[in-house]
């Protein structure tokens, strides 16, 4: 069977990302340390301070570790998505991107393939993290490991697209520290990843409002429900809509000249 050049390019990009991933095993493992610290250390310290009542999709009282597991899965996707998107634009002064962009296929297709490839590899990290969660008695239902897959993939693409969109526009975000302070931390802390939104509402109405318009909140909720084989339709619609908008904006707005201009060549 003759594959189309589009399919061949997609598999080629995916294979390369996979091979690079194999060669960067230590980076893969060290990236698991951050969410594990949250799950084991932070959660141990905070479970006494934060009582979590029974809220959907949970049927019973749950431990704080159980509550933050979906949020930490999304945190992995958030870091990887932002880091991956930034490296697409600035990695080695456009070195590897030049090879990609010399393909005769449409640029938007190539970038989309790259976003999907980065997203798929982030999923491997998330599953490794969930597997480690079982060691500390955070055990989502096994069927949830399957049903959460599309939710994680959608979230990973959304975050990669947001990263690509931002990095192409905001010069101050060129270094990762800037992204941490202005994108990752606000997105993560102003969401339902670490605390239910009703808790936030008790403290501040406007903080609650900010959290509820944060697309990351809806991605976390989508993952949380999917992990228990349930569909949160509102979260799905908002996450899918955000993914669509930012993917289109990021692909249309991608401009390799940006890097050269910002360096003032």
């Amino acid at each position: 069977m003759q594959l189309s050049p589009y399919t061949i390019a997609f598999t080629g990009i995916l294979k390369r990302e996979f091979l690079r991933f194999i060669h960067q095993r230590t980076r893969f493992l060290s990236a698991l340390v951050r969410p594990l610290l949250w799950l084991v250390v932070f959660a141990a310290g905070f479970r006494a301070a934060l009582g979590v009542s029974i809220i959907p999709p949970y049927q019973t009282y749950i431990t704080y570790e159980t509550y933050i597991l979906p949020g930490l899965c999304c945190m992995i996707l958030l870091f990887n998505g932002m880091q991956g998107a930034l490296s697409m634009v600035y990695d080695r002064e456009m070195g590897s991107m030049k090879v990609l962009l010399m393909s005769p296929l449409p640029r938007s297709w190539l970038l989309f393939c790259k976003l999907i490839a980065i997203a798929l590899l982030s999923l491997a990290q998330v599953y490794a993290f969930i597997a480690l969660g079982f060691l500390v008695d955070v055990e989502p239902p096994l069927i949830g490991l399957l049903t959460v897959l599309p939710a994680l993939l959608l979230t990973a693409v959304m975050l990669g697209a947001i990263g690509l969109f931002l990095s192409a526009r905001i010069r101050q975000l060129e270094n990762f520290a800037g992204v941490m302070n202005f994108v990752i931390f606000p997105m993560f802390f102003l969401s339902s990843a670490l605390y239910p939104l009703w808790k936030m509402r008790e403290s501040s109405e406007w903080l609650y409002w900010v959290c509820s318009v944060n697309p990351f909140t809806h991605a976390v909720e989508l993952v949380r429900f999917a992990l228990y084989a349930e569909l949160n339709l509102e979260a799905l619609l908002i996450t899918a809509g955000t993914t669509l908008v930012f993917t289109v904006l990021a692909l249309l707005g991608f401009n390799p000249e940006q890097a050269a201009h910002s360096k003032g060549r």
């Binding site: 061949i8 390369r16 091979l19 590897s96 030049k98 990609l100 393909s103 296929l105």
Partner: peptide
């Protein structure tokens, strides 16, 4: 250089080839 240092010669060529269909 735009080669992937960790990948083999053939893997680098395969990647470029895939991008050209």
């Amino acid at each position: 250089s735009t080669l992937d240092l960790d990948l083999s010669v053939l893997q680098n060529l395969e990647y470029h080839g895939a991008l050209h269909g």
